[in-house]
Amino acid sequence: MSLNLVENIRHHGFKRLLLAVSGGLDSICLAHYFIENSAALGIEWLGIAHVHHGLREGTADRDAKFVEEFAKSHDVPFFLKKLDGEALKNAEGSLEENARDARYKALVEIALNKKWRSRNGVRDDIEEGGVTIAIVTAHHAGDQAETMYMRLKRGTTLAGLRGIQEVRIIQDDTSLVSRLSSLVFLYRPFLNVTRKELLTYARENGLSWCEDESNADVKFARNKIRHEFLPNLERECPGAIQQLCKIAGLADRAYAKVMAKCSRSFGFAQDDTRGFPLTSASPQDDASLVSRLSSFVSLDKKKLNKILREYADADLSEMFRLWLTEKGFRFPIGFFYGPKEPAHVKIPVRAVYRRRSVVKIAHTVWICEFKDALSAAKFVSCEKKEKDYNEST
Rank of each mutant, 00 (worst) to 15 (best):
M1E: 08
L5Q: 10
N8V: 02
H12Y: 15
L17H: 04
L18K: 02
L18P: 06
S22I: 06
L25D: 04
C29P: 04
A31I: 05
I35T: 10
I35M: 00
N37H: 15
L41G: 05
I43R: 08
W45Q: 12
I48E: 07
H53N: 09
T59N: 10
A71K: 00
S73M: 14
P77L: 09
F78Q: 12
F79C: 05
L80Y: 07
L83I: 06
L88E: 08
K105A: 13
K105M: 15
A106G: 05
V108A: 12
E109D: 12
L112C: 09
N113F: 03
K114V: 14
K114E: 15
W116V: 09
R119K: 14
R119C: 02
E128F: 11
T132S: 11
A134Q: 06
H139V: 03
H140G: 11
Q144E: 12
Q144V: 10
A145Q: 03
A145W: 00
T147N: 01
Y149E: 00
G155C: 08
T156V: 05
L158E: 02
L161D: 01
R162A: 14
D172I: 08
V177D: 11
V177Y: 03
S178Q: 11
S182P: 04
S182A: 14
V184Y: 06
L186G: 04
R188H: 10
P189E: 09
V193N: 03
E197N: 00
L198S: 03
E211H: 11
R226P: 01
H227Y: 07
E228A: 03
L233D: 00
C237M: 07
I241W: 01
A251E: 04
K257W: 00
M259D: 14
S263L: 05
F268N: 11
G275V: 09
F276K: 05
T279Q: 12
A281V: 13
S288N: 14
L289G: 01
S291L: 07
S295T: 12
V297F: 03
D300W: 02
K301W: 01
R309C: 03
Y311C: 07
Y311W: 13
A312P: 01
D313H: 15
E318I: 05
R321S: 08
L322C: 07
L324C: 12
F331Q: 07
P339Y: 03
K340L: 12
V345F: 10
V345H: 09
K346C: 10
R350W: 01
A351F: 06
R356T: 09
K360Q: 14
E369L: 15
F370L: 05
D372L: 04
A373D: 14
L374N: 10
S375V: 08
S375T: 11
A376L: 03
E383P: 01
S392V: 01
T393S: 11
